[in-house]
């Protein structure tokens, strides 16, 4: 079972996917259409690249403050949360109260991002 399959089968996860940092491909599993998954991967990829830039600049300010390289991010909406770790994303239903478990899963199953974005 691939990481994405396993992630998508976790309680509370509606859909999971991964994208190439170059933007030329993506894959997904779960309750999304191909077009929505493509849109989601474009959005997640853009935010990840922007965050990498911002965090690298924070570090450039002369302080290795524990932030760089960025490992991931999440955005909590009214009913859903989007979580991203490296180039892997998932949509979580807030009603499931599984955010901690999913973030733990991502932390344990995805190697530290060294910042190369390849």
């Amino acid at each position: 079972m691939s990481l994405i399959d396993e992630l998508a089968s976790q309680p509370g996860v509606m859909a999971a996917g991964e994208y190439a940092y170059r933007g030329d491909r993506f894959s997904y599993v779960g309750q999304l259409t191909e077009e929505l998954a493509r849109m989601a991967s474009i959005m997640c990829r853009t935010t990840s690249m922007a965050l990498h830039m911002q965090v690298d600049m924070l570090k450039e300010m002369g302080r290795d403050c524990g932030c760089a390289p960025a490992q991931g991010w999440s955005v909590k909406g009214k009913d859903y949360t989007v979580c991203v770790r490296a180039n892997v994303f998932c949509f979580i239903d807030n009603k499931s109260n599984e955010l901690n478990n999913i973030m733990k899963f991502l932390n344990e199953h995805i190697a530290s991002d060294e910042g190369a974005m390849v």
Partner: peptide
């Protein structure tokens, strides 16, 4: 707007997972 899949807006929180914190 595009998907009619509501439940993201308004954003209630943002989180950045750094290297150590």
């Amino acid at each position: 707007k595009m998907t009619q899949m509501e439940g993201f807006y308004p954003i209630q929180g943002f989180s950045l997972i750094g290297f150590e914190w």
